[in-house]
């Protein structure tokens, strides 16, 4: 098995879930649990594809996917933040809406071919003997996703806005008392999460497969939710988690292709079991990994 090709394949396979999970992590950091990732991803997948096909530009497709993911997520934001609906139920509803909507929009785009997103050949680095092919000859979105990981990490750790976001997620009542606009912060986080999920979906329809087919994200949004937990709400953890989850699939398929008999089901469930174990370890240490206000509605009653 060639490790160079393997790593390169894992990076492509993991990018959609990396993007979606990163967005969802920011949402959860602000104290909101949006279970509608799958719905936003599939909407991003169809909108990204449609825009890329009609404009001829894959990058415009990604931009459109981000916008449509964000718009859809704001429907969730409006319901949960202004009308104080239950986040779990609203998120599930968002998934239903996204799946239905995308299938209706996409019915004209079945069987079409998308414009290809070219590989970004980085001079010098791309010519390195092993690492060049492994790490430095991908398309631009792979690097965008990695850059976003770094940006989110820095944002949460070093900026004042990041601090406010975390404060809102940990204790919305205190944050409100300190004068922070809880609802606005959360809406911004939700929109960011929607945009990331939309781009993740577009990566499936524009690069990984590349075509539009109804229901094509096939549960990737739920995996993204698992990754956030696995990562215990840290940007670097999301990166590791996405590559681990993506890696298990790719390695399993490669082992089969290399003629090895593998217990497919055991391998496919292993990332989830590892996630539970990680979760137990975090909570056993006494540190609550999850933001304290996660999933609770906020209403300023004063």
């Amino acid at each position: 098995m060639d490790p160079v090709l393997l790593v390169a394949s894992i990076m492509v396979s993991a990018t959609p879930i990396l993007l979606a999970a990163l967005g969802e992590m920011v949402v959860e950091k602000s104290g909101v649990l949006n279970l509608g990732v799958e719905g936003m991803m599939i909407t991003g997948a169809v909108m990204g594809f449609a825009i890329a096909v009609s404009s001829g530009s894959p990058l415009l497709g990604f931009a459109g996917a981000a916008v449509s993911g964000a718009v859809l997520s704001l429907a969730f934001g409006f319901l949960t933040q202004y009308l104080l609906s239950n986040q779990v139920a609203t998120g599930l509803g968002l998934t239903l809406v996204g799946l239905g909507l995308s299938a209706l929009i996409g019915s004209n785009y079945e069987g079409q071919r998308a414009p290809a997103l070219g590989k970004l050949d980085i001079p010098l680095l791309g010519d390195l003997p092993v690492l060049g092919r492994m790490l430095f000859s991908h398309d631009i979105m792979v690097y965008v996703s990695l850059a976003l990981v770094a940006a989110v990490w820095a944002f949460l750790k070093f900026t004042r806005a990041g601090l406010i976001l975390r404060a809102v997620g940990e204790d919305h009542a205190s944050a409100h008392a300190l004068g922070y606009k809880v609802v606005r912060v959360r809406l911004a986080a939700i929109a960011f999460g929607g945009a990331c999920a939309g781009m993740g979906g577009a990566y499936v329809s524009l690069v990984r497969v590349p075509q539009w087919t109804e229901g094509m994200t096939a549960g990737a949004g739920w995996i993204a939710l698992a990754i956030v937990v696995f990562a215990s709400w840290r940007a670097l953890g999301v990166l590791i988690g996405a590559y681990l989850f993506g890696g298990v699939t790719v390695i399993q398929l490669n082992l089969q292709a290399a003629g090895t008999t593998v217990p497919v089901e055991l391998l496919s469930m292993s990332p989830y079991l590892i996630t539970i174990i990680v979760l137990v370890i975090i909570s056993a240490r006494g540190a609550q990994g999850a933001p304290a206000s996660l999933g609770r509605s906020f209403h300023a009653s004063s």
Partner: peptide, 14 residues
Amino acid sequence: PGASIQLFQGMLLF
């Protein structure tokens, strides 16, 4: 289309 029913249910919930 089947998808329109799914969307319809989503709307009802929303």
